[in-house]
Design a protein around this nucleic acid. Structure first.
Lengths: 246, 246
DNA sequence: CGATAAGTTGAACTGGCTCAAGTCATGTGG
DNA sequence: CCACATGACTTGAGCCAGTTCAACTTATCG
């Protein structure tokens, strides 16, 4: 049951060519005719509610998923039983590439709130890529992006302190929102403190303390999950973003 | 100047079909005729000595590199000036995929000892991939492996302590050696303590202390860079490898 | 052979963890 | 629609793994 106002995001029938996320998603670099061919293999607009799985760790890999609405996290369960968050995905982003090499998903992916997604069967995507060079190129680049993103995360985890990590996550969400034409300064955190902590390699208490400290410095306000960045430059300073990137 | 005994590794003229690393490298899954076509685009057998760069951070990306002999590290320079090691590459492995998405290398890659490599121009690889589906598939899988590897590293950095990280690195080198038909229990560390520390997100002193402790427990002997694993099961225990993987 | 880089070990310090006690938000069943 | 249960969040206090700084030994190489 969709409210009238959200039809444009979640209308299950909308094609890639008409999707307002097209400029972020797989179709970039494709022409109209190529998008039509891509459209034919995409299973569009499935809806999920909070807590629903997109796939589970160990599942046979047979598709990648383009997020249309909502947010998702990926995680691994350690054999002691607790979960390690490995990724956060927002609309226009692609989840599931962790299964390509071994043919099984190495993570689980779960909806953090009500959302929807498109399923792109990988086998068909491979076949189509072989026939559409620009699609092949696009997908190589998309995987390359995933590698770069993971490596940035890696660098952060091995050299930044708690404050820098939290600031960097906020900046990441902020800029991803900005790309989607949403506010870069006000947004809702899709994850709990525990999930953020797991993702950033710190405890939930430390996450909470960092938020309190940043608030005390008037860099942002925190109202539960609602974040309002008051001083973007200062936040970038905390994250130790190089001057050139500011 | 190559010694007689090493000719088989480093003979610059050897083709992919004859290379004894073929079963680890790009050609897996290709038939003889396809390998011939791949051979035509590969620039083979360049030699490098310790400290030579394969590429530098910021360089325009135009090729990926298959390691033939020796070992390489990748790293980023933080704007404070110190370097963050992001990867270790051994023969049969592919370096340079970090440049695919943005067309510029996000890391530098440098030889840790005398070595050699093959250069595979990416543009030509893309073209060839579009015409050889099994090559396209192989390359998708290779990139997928890189993603999985980075994510494992990520999980390790956010949830394992110093001892677990060092143990995991040793096990990783051990199993990669094993795949190359070398000893899984005796090998030379290609990196200094400082490089290992940077890679694992700990200080060089901590790396040294962990080695001392593992030695005291008779799990291994350390003679400078020479490692001899005495008790593989115990080492796996320290690394908290799940029982199933042992 | 001497200089310089690499590695080890000790001692003191500290950021973030753990444990604990409490407040606040959310949502479910009566 | 409220009450109450449960999960999410905050804050404090003590502790500890790993850092920092320092002194020293051991390799490496021109």
């Amino acid at each position: 049951m969709q409210s009238r106002a959200r039809v444009c995001h979640t209308n299950p029938g909308i094609s890639c060519g008409d999707c307002r996320l097209g400029e972020l998603c797989l179709p970039i670099a494709l022409d109209a005719q190529e998008i039509t061919r891509l459209d034919e293999i995409v299973k569009r607009g499935r809806a999920l509610s909070k807590g629903d799985y997109l796939y589970r760790e160990g599942d046979v890999f047979n598709a990648i998923y383009a997020i249309r609405a909502g947010s998702f996290k990926t995680f691994k369960s350690t054999w002691e039983g607790d979960e390690q968050v490995t990724g956060l995905f927002l609309p226009g982003e692609i989840v599931g590439m962790d299964g390509i090499s071994s043919n099984r998903h190495g993570n689980s992916a779960i909806a953090l709130e009500t959302g929807s997604f498109c399923e792109i069967p990988f086998h068909q995507l491979e076949e189509l890529s072989a026939r559409i060079p620009s699609l092949q190129g696009r997908f190589f680049r998309l995987m390359g992006q995933e590698i770069v993103k993971d490596q940035q995360m890696l660098t952060m985890l091995s050299s930044n302190d708690a404050e820098e990590r939290v600031a960097a996550l906020l900046l990441s969400i902020s800029s991803r929102n900005h790309r989607r034409k949403l506010s870069a300064t006000q947004f809702r955190l899709p994850m709990t403190r525990a999930e953020i902590g797991s993702y950033l390699g710190i405890t939930l208490e430390t996450v909470s303390r960092v938020f309190s400290r940043l608030q005390k410095q008037n860099i942002l306000t925190v109202d539960n999950k609602e974040i309002h960045v008051l001083d973007m430059a200062a936040l970038k300073g905390v994250a130790r973003v190089k001057p050139a990137d500011c």
